[in-house]
Amino acid sequence: MKKKFMLDLVVKNNEFLNNQYFILKLSSPEKLPEMLPGQFVEVRVDGSSESFLRRPISINYVDREMNELWLLIQIIGAGTRKLSELKAGNFLNLIFPLGNSFTLPAKKDSNLLLIGGGVGIAPLLFWGSYLHKLGYKCNFLLGGRSKENLLQLCEFERFGNVHTTTEDGSHGERGFVTQHSLLKSTNFEAIYSCGPTPMMKAVALYAAEKGIFCEVSLENTMACGIGACLCCVTDTVDGHVCVCTEGPVFNITTLKWQN
C-alpha cells in the first residue's frame, strides 16, 4: 500500500456548481502525492462545534499539470456546510490518499460503462480521465433527481460519451439510470458505479444477471479512515471488512448485499 500523508493543502478555488454542490480545488507548494482513481481523503473540519470527526470524501479529479486535487462536495450537514465556506487561500488538512482503487479492464478495447448518481459521480471523473489517458473508451451514464443534480457534464464529455437520466425528465431520459435504453441496446464488458446504495444495488443486480464484471464504490460512515476503528465495515464473503482499507471499491461478487 502507498504511503499516506497528513498535509495542509491550500484552497485555490471554491467553485459552486449550484446552491447544493461545490468543488474545492486544492494544491500545495510541493508536488502532490501519487493518487489513484477510487481513492479518497479524510478532511478535518475546523471551526464547527457540530462536527467532530473528519469527513471522508472521494477524490474527484487530479490535475497533474496544475498540481491540483479536486473534491466535489454536497452540502448535507454541519461539516459539509462549514467546508463550503472555505475561500481561496484558506488551508484544509487532509489525510490521504486512502483506500484502494478501481481495477483496469482486462482488454484495451473493452466496452466500459461508468454509472454515477448524484454526488456519487465524484470518483468517476478521475477514473474516466485515467482510463481515457490510457486509451480506453468510456461511456458515462449519470443520473440525478433533476437536472440540478447532474454535475460536471462538460468535464465528463472530455473523456467519453455522456448519457443522462433524471427522475423528473428535465435532462436526458426520464427514470433511473438502470432504466436507460443504453443498457438494453449495448453489451458492456465492465461496469463501474458510485452513487446512492439503492442505485448501486440495482446496477449490481443488472451486472450480475448479465455476468458483467462490476465494481462499486461504497461510502460508509467512517471515523479513522485508516483501518484502526473498524466502524465502516461492510459484510463480504470474507466477513466484515473495513471499507476504508479493503475498499471503498469492491467487486460485487464479494459483497453480501441482503439489505
Partner: peptide
Amino acid sequence: RQGNPYPRMAETPSGMLNAVGLQ
C-alpha cells in the same frame, strides 16, 4: 468475532458512539 452489523458509529456533539462489538 465478526462484531456487530453496520452501522456501528454515530458522531455526537464533541464525541462519537461506537458499537464495534470486539471484531
